[in-house]
Design a protein around this nucleic acid. Sequence first.
DNA 1: CGCAAATGGTTACAATTGCAACCATTATAC
DNA 2: GTATAATGGTTGCAATTGTAACCATTTGCG
Lengths: 161, 161
Amino acid sequence: MPPTPSLQLDRFVPYRLSVLANLVSSAISGAYAERYSLSIPEWRVIAALGEQPGMSAADVAARTAMDKVAVSRAVAALLRARRIVRTQSRRDRRRSVLRLSRTGAALYARVVPQVLEYEAALLGVLGRDERRALDRLLEKLTRRAGELTPCIIARLAPNAR
Amino acid sequence: MPPTPSLQLDRFVPYRLSVLANLVSSAISGAYAERYSLSIPEWRVIAALGEQPGMSAADVAARTAMDKVAVSRAVAALLRARRIVRTQSRRDRRRSVLRLSRTGAALYARVVPQVLEYEAALLGVLGRDERRALDRLLEKLTRRAGELTPCIIARLAPNAR
DNA sequence: CGCAAATGGTTACAATTGCAACCATTATAC
DNA sequence: GTATAATGGTTGCAATTGTAACCATTTGCG
């Protein structure tokens, strides 16, 4: 009987999740990074705007779970490359209104099928029921992780902001 | 019929995996980072050595899916803090032999229950069958992602090293 | 109204990270 | 055997990233 409850790394779900997510992320970014010189945050912004045009930077950040600084930098790079265009909201002059440019939309249209193809290849090992189970598990775990995180932060840093 | 097969970010498994893994990782690191001033790579090295003492840096890298540079730096920091000790392999004088120091082992013993507790809380939303399903899915997807990654790399960068 | 607080967004600076080059040692080929 | 390649590990440098501070605008409230 070990004095410490034993931790087996490759039975440990957080670790396994991290390894899997990293594998998948780097494979996906391989599908556009070099080819179109597009960083991961830049791609995320493009993906968000391709799905729902007209969002502000803050909307994009919320939508993609990115940091607002990361969004700001990605937006700056995409503007420089003329892959998106930015206007100002009339109602709230702080808010930007972001859209894909023609170039950006073309890029989006080229990359989307590739990443979907990757996803299909990945999920190809799963049967219909397994996919449904995966969907459900991701949903449940993400919700629970979201509930757990602020609480842990509060517990460990009760004085935080 | 859209000209582009549509990408819905929150139906897209790679994206969902990444969000979940980030949530979980930051929650976990919250359990030791501040408290023991231990970075994520440092904790990974500790965890690997706690589970299997005597590994070399390369072994640790393989075991934890970390970059060898990251391991090297984490090892340097842990040596400075006297949380691990390093000797040299007699048979191969390039290889290091790493072990937790008494301090490191104590740290390990204190952190392990916390991270296990977090894992238990996370998995608490799942029933027995769901946990089994999760285990199986993680295994299948990780294996598949591993198979897919080199192939994609090869396809996109046929001239790579 | 008028002031404090909140929000959107950017910038500066420091800390992390990744990549390539490197040294030392060991394995392989001739 | 020696030359060459491969492996273990570290370091330097550049790029990425996170944090905090900041400006502008808007919101909430007395």
